[in-house]
């Protein structure tokens, strides 16, 4: 077994193990941390597939920012685990149907008859100076520019919606405008007067 194959199986086993832990841990903080581990291992897999940009972007965006906010929220919430587990039996039939459907779909798409090496030949390894990032950028900004721009516009709408939902006017706060704060000069507020010392009678 070549070293790359060994790495692939290592990452794959860790990925699946971490993914199982995410849904079986009782403590939500542990679940989030296992999700981080899962992201790491899938980044490793992508790295093996020579897509270093996607791998690093996964770590940067999901591990570095999204999961931090996740942890932030999970740590702040006082989650009642008993309450979360209460609906398990009631929801089980629906969940089972969804799970079986998904497995069936995966089997149909990824079974050896349709997804084997003879249908999709392994791509030739790229030379060392091949820049995955540049290629991706070229494809995104030429061929797929409309899809890219539309996705960007949708995200922008999302940002505006999120901000407008959380924005509230609060007239009772003692907020000071920093612009006015820095313009304050001593002369506006303080008057130094000269006077003779008062003599006590």
């Amino acid at each position: 077994m070549s070293f790359e194959k060994f790495l692939f199986y290592l990452f794959a086993v860790f990925l699946i193990g971490a993914a199982v832990m995410v849904i079986t841990r009782k403590n939500p903080v542990h679940s989030v941390l296992f999700l981080v581990l899962a992201f790491f291992n899938s980044a490793g897999l992508w790295m093996l597939a020579e897509s270093e940009f996607l791998a690093l972007a996964l770590v940067l965006v999901y591990v570095g920012a999204v999961m931090v906010l996740f942890l932030f929220v999970v740590m702040m919430l006082d989650i009642n685990i008993a309450e979360l587990r209460a609906g398990f039996v009631r929801n089980l039939p629906v969940a089972l149907v969804v799970a079986i459907l998904m497995v069936a779909e995966l089997v149909m798409v990824l079974s050896p008859e349709r997804f084997g090496l003879k249908h999709y030949a392994a791509p030739a390894p790229k030379p060392a100076d091949y820049s995955n990032t540049a290629e991706l950028g070229m494809a995104l900004f030429t061929q797929h520019i409309y899809a890219f721009e539309i996705a960007g516009a949708i995200l922008l709408v999302g940002i505006v919606a999120a901000i407008s939902l959380t924005l509230r006017r609060r007239p009772d706060t003692k907020y000071l405008d920093p612009g006015q704060q820095v313009q304050v000069r001593a002369a506006d507020r303080l008057r130094v007067i000269e006077m003779k010392p008062e003599e006590k009678a």
């Binding site: 903080v29 941390l33 981080v36 270093e52 940009f53 690093l56 972007a57 770590v59 940067l60 591990v63 570095g64 920012a65 931090v68 942890l71 932030f72 740590m75 100076d129 091949y130 820049s131 995955n132 990032t133």
Partner: peptide
């Protein structure tokens, strides 16, 4: 000497926060 060195550095420096958060929790 990797192609995406800058991205790698950025990704790694963003991970330092986990030490802080996990320590705090």
């Amino acid at each position: 000497d990797v192609n995406a060195g800058l991205l790698y550095v950025l990704a790694l420096t963003s991970l330092g926060v986990y030490g802080v958060i996990i320590a705090g929790w």
